[in-house]
Amino acid sequence: LGILWVLVERTSIGQEIQAVGGNPAAARLAGINVDRIKTLGFVISGMCASLTGILLASRLGSGTTSAADSYLLTAFAAVFLGSATLRDGEFHVLGTLVGALIIAFGFNGLNIFGAPTFSQYVFQGAILIIAVGLSSLGRSLAES
């Protein structure tokens, strides 16, 4: 996670990736090779996905296409929670880390209290609704 943060925030390639993600036409006018940056983004994403697949397969001892389905909602919740908490509507590495920590602490608390497994999904949904609601309220108060 730290390596990705350094790549995105502290290197010229990371700045170009952010520029292409923000506005490809403006990035092209600024002299950035948009097709090369998109390809690089897909390569980095594919490498991270393949590393994750290898780690998951080694943990499970087998490989199936539906092995990570239970992690999908948690990953989305962490990313969207992170984008709603620190910089409103912007996806970034630090926000994802904060979102993942909030979700992990919540799950740990539910396990400590002996809550049933389905309550983790209810917790994820509730925390996302609260985060988006507070973010929208903060945005409307800032505009006033």
Rank of each mutant, 00 (worst) to 15 (best):
L73N: 02
R59Y: 07
D35I: 11
T64Q: 10
N33A: 12
K38Y: 13
A77I: 04
V6L: 15
I37K: 01
L86C: 01
L97S: 08
L86R: 04
G53M: 01
R10M: 12
I103M: 13
I37G: 00
P24V: 05
L60E: 06
L134P: 10
A25M: 08
V98N: 05
L1R: 04
F76C: 03
E16H: 08
A78L: 09
I127H: 06
T85W: 09
V20D: 01
R87G: 00
L4Y: 10
T117E: 08
F113I: 13
A78K: 09
L137I: 15
D88G: 14
G22D: 07
L134N: 11
R10C: 12
L72E: 01
I127K: 09
R87T: 10
T11F: 11
D35S: 14
V132R: 14
G53P: 01
G95S: 06
F107M: 02
R10G: 07
D69N: 11
G41M: 11
Q18N: 07
V122G: 06
P24D: 12
T11K: 05
T96L: 06
T11E: 13
I3D: 02
V43F: 14
T65N: 08
S12H: 11
L101D: 03
F123R: 03
N108I: 12
A57L: 01
V20H: 03
S144V: 05
A49P: 00
A131D: 12
F42I: 09
I13V: 14
T11D: 08
A30C: 05
L51A: 13
R139H: 08
F123V: 07
L40P: 03
W5C: 03
F80G: 00
G61P: 02
F80A: 06
L7D: 00
R36P: 02
A49Q: 03
P116T: 03
N111L: 13
L60T: 01
Q124F: 06
L55M: 10
V34I: 06
S119F: 14
R10H: 15
G95C: 11
N33C: 04
G82M: 09
L51D: 02
Q18A: 09
P116H: 05
S58E: 08
S50H: 04
G61F: 10
A49H: 03
K38S: 04
S62C: 01
A68L: 04
T85P: 07
V6D: 07
F105A: 15
Q18G: 02
V34Y: 00
A49C: 12
G14K: 12
C48Y: 12
G31Q: 09
S45R: 07
G31F: 10
A67D: 02
F91G: 13
P24T: 05
T65M: 06
Q120E: 11
A126I: 15
E9T: 12
I32P: 00
G41I: 05
L134A: 13
G106W: 06
F80Q: 01
S136D: 13
R87K: 12
L137C: 07
I17G: 01
A75D: 04
L4F: 09
A49G: 07
T65A: 11
